[in-house]
């Protein structure tokens, strides 16, 4: 395996302007995430967790600092370039799933593949594989509103991984789920990290959820606190 970390943040800073005021949700943050690691991020509300995740996922651009992912500095990419970069490198899992309500589970999972030049057959195989991986091959043709929250989130995970990106980011993926559904989602993420070598960065408020990860970091006022390795 490649020895260089998949994610390398160096003095990463993000400012937002709120009227005349400037807020700085991230302040000169340094972080390395090795390939294949499942990292959990915790911290109080407003500590900058989502901001950090958005930077890592190429949804937002840093104000200062370096952000190297998979050997590429993405901090200077334009909005259009970032968009293409995201399609190949990141799968984003949201707290509220954000499935497209008018499309079936199958069609939702297929969306990322339509950006690439797969043949129709390849696409079908990949979508079916992804849905099988999350245990929903029998719900392929259901619309999101015909699925439970846990099932919706698993479809969202299938959508995030179908294009086989090296990095998955998840913002409170279990925040809206009951205990059982949360457990199955966490188990799935663990599996993706351990068996499929995905690097995962997950934000959570739930210490139980954080236990699923390999490492836990605490964020407070835009800075990382201690680092603790979790028992495997």
């Amino acid at each position: 395996m490649n020895a260089s970390p998949l994610i390398h943040c160096h003095h990463l800073t993000k400012h937002y302007r709120k009227g005349k005021q400037q807020v700085t949700p991230l302040q000169a943050l340094d972080l390395k995430v090795p390939r294949g690691e499942f990292l959990a991020l915790m911290g109080p509300s407003g500590s900058g967790k989502t901001t950090l995740l958005n930077l890592i996922a190429g949804i937002d651009s840093p104000s200062e600092g370096e952000l190297i992912i998979d050997g590429q500095d993405i901090s200077q990419l334009s909005r259009g370039k970032l968009s293409r970069w995201r399609a190949q490198h990141v799968g984003y899992i949201f707290q509220l799933y954000h499935l497209i309500p008018v499309l079936s589970a199958y069609e939702n999972v297929e969306l990322p593949l339509l950006l690439d030049s797969f043949s129709g057959r390849e696409r079908r195989e990949r979508v079916e594989l992804a849905l099988r991986l999350v245990g929903l091959e029998d719900r392929m043709h259901h619309k999101p509103k015909e699925l439970s929250g846990g099932q919706e989130q698993r479809v969202a995970i299938a959508r995030a991984l179908v294009a086989d990106p090296p990095l998955l980011v998840a913002d409170e993926p279990t925040g809206d789920l009951d205990r059982d559904a949360a457990a199955s989602v966490l188990q799935l993420l663990q599996e993706l990290s351990r068996e499929h070598g995905k690097t995962i960065v997950m934000v959570t408020h739930d210490p139980k959820a954080a236990e699923a990860a390999d490492r836990l970091l605490h964020l407070e006022k835009g800075k990382l606190l201690e680092s603790e390795a979790l028992p495997a």
Binding site: G80, I100, L111, L115, R159
Partner: peptide
């Protein structure tokens, strides 16, 4: 809005 943003997150221009 959120749905359109999701599509952008997936990589749609």
């Amino acid at each position: 809005i959120a749905e359109l943003a999701t599509l952008q997150t997936l990589g749609y221009s």
